[in-house]
Design a protein around this nucleic acid. Sequence first.
DNA 1: CCTAGCATCTGCAACGTTTCAGAAGCGCCC
DNA 2: GGGCGCTTCTGAAACGTTGCAGATGCTAGG
Lengths: 349, 349
Amino acid sequence: MADGARRATMTTVARALGVSPSTVSNAYNRPDQLSADLRARVLATAARLGYAGPDPVARTLRHGRTGAIGLVYDEPLSFSFTDPAAVLCLRGVAAACERHAVGLTLVPRLPAGAPDLVGTALVDGLVLYCLPADDDRLRVARERGLPVVAVDSPRPPLAPAVTVDDRGGARAAARHLLDLGHRRVAVVAERLAADGWEGTAPRARQDANPYDGTRERLAGYRDAWEAAGLDWDAVRVEERAPYGRDAGRRAARDLLADRPTAVLAMSDELALGVLDAAAARGLRVPGDLSVVGFDDTPSAAAAGLTTVAQPHLEKGAAAARLLLDLPGGAAAPPPLPTRLVVRTSTAAS
Amino acid sequence: MADGARRATMTTVARALGVSPSTVSNAYNRPDQLSADLRARVLATAARLGYAGPDPVARTLRHGRTGAIGLVYDEPLSFSFTDPAAVLCLRGVAAACERHAVGLTLVPRLPAGAPDLVGTALVDGLVLYCLPADDDRLRVARERGLPVVAVDSPRPPLAPAVTVDDRGGARAAARHLLDLGHRRVAVVAERLAADGWEGTAPRARQDANPYDGTRERLAGYRDAWEAAGLDWDAVRVEERAPYGRDAGRRAARDLLADRPTAVLAMSDELALGVLDAAAARGLRVPGDLSVVGFDDTPSAAAAGLTTVAQPHLEKGAAAARLLLDLPGGAAAPPPLPTRLVVRTSTAAS
DNA sequence: CCTAGCATCTGCAACGTTTCAGAAGCGCCC
DNA sequence: GGGCGCTTCTGAAACGTTGCAGATGCTAGG
């Protein structure tokens, strides 16, 4: 009601009522510390003066707890949420935050040069999503003394993390194709470094991939390959950036000239791009070409894609819980399981 | 390096170096206020003591700016991000935040009874997404003196808002069906109140809908209907909750018993559910049934759905800009345009 | 040689809370 | 009537910054 020159504060209310600020504070935080009558009068005066309760920032300074955790993505936010898998993980994190009555702050990535927001975000901890192993933001968070949990990448010992059995899942995907008799197989990969490079990734690049999650996936494919006594270096790994369905389309356009009988796509979005490209080329799936994805997103399911399922929601939720349950920072849990889901995009060679 | 009993602070560093705290502060915030040499020494000592720079919370208290805006949804976060339209809007908001180098805090909705986080979130302003006109959180934000911008609902004069021409879009959708000769048309609606009710919504309920955006959509359908001289109250408006594709399926399952020739779905997710139900019933679209959606989401496009496009990204970005550009709170911009996109889910009756 | 001006640095007072060790008043019991 | 314990309230000291009005010393100009 009364909107003075300056917004009302605890002291304002205290003075108006002739009591001490501590009393006003108690009225809000410890009702048992003052008589019901006085408390009512405090609240009434507060209402009259337009005082909306203790200032959250000052309270935070005092308490040392912001009541929010942060979520950091490798790419700009508006791009990250283009990826259905990232959104699923976000939902998991959000669900855990809701359960703990804690805010979730998306920490934007700024254009290079700008002072990083990871250094100044008002959070009690950070979930890092798919950051490369050597990312600066991990270091900055550490320096601030913020608890950190990584998802997908980087993995321990670089950072405490919630991991998924990417390697096992990828191995199962590759073995599935091998079991179906495929030998001329190509891989469609998302970025294996943050340099925006595109092309057929040589072995050195595959191994130097700083994104731990996808490096594991590639390693899983290779496991299966070598277990079958085949030469992994003969497999074409076609890398495209930036990430997305279009990347899959473009990779496949080039790849299909080799007439592979099957494609291992490192994610469902890429795989859906491959399906597009195949259709454009008049190839039937799975008759002429088998395709396997990774992630098991809803649109992959709708498209009948054979893929590797991982528990996206649980992954995000586990990361948030790790931050929220044990403030000290808990030990990393065992890898979450992956599972091959066979649908209609794969058939015998 | 040195990890004392307590984390280093500005005063710690100052004392260690025998200078005043102000000097340390200046070393970080106003390099021109001290000699390059001293500054270097300050930074070095800070590094040695493991001081990571000014504490964001204290800085915030001093400055009165948190450097983040909040985003509030009507439903729990993990549910909201189930809606592709909500994610698109989120992307728009996030993009604007990135451009302004500002964090984006998702403010969870807590189970009833818990103290609302809108009252304590560390933000400089709030974007309210699809809140009912009488939502408490709008009031709480106001009391805190936080700038607020609503998206979709509530609309001015209840709150400054970014609005979309929902009514015009809906009108175009309905007219499209009328032009194709459809007269036996039914509507599939999302929740028209927060009570979880399901059924055929009577006129009173349609008009009392506290969600301004969807009320406008219904009004748009009715506009077209009445302009054609038809009786709106004869149109069955089938409401389902909670929101989602399954809601569309269930509504359609009941609705199709009436043998309508067309369905107006108030969103694409609902429309996709209607397509499912139609397929399950053996109805061909658009041969036996025409379906129009609203939103123009990617999966709607993929499904060939005729729908009403709205600029989701721009909607979110505009809301954030309104909060960030003019701290005082700018005037609401004119409604953003909608556009009927005719695809293959509609045909002559 | 005096002074104005500049470059550097310092102290103090906020910013708005919360906490904690009391103090004051009062009733009760032995 | 003295001591004890309880309830209710107060004062002062943090929490970690930053802005502002100086203080200090040094240089250049007259």
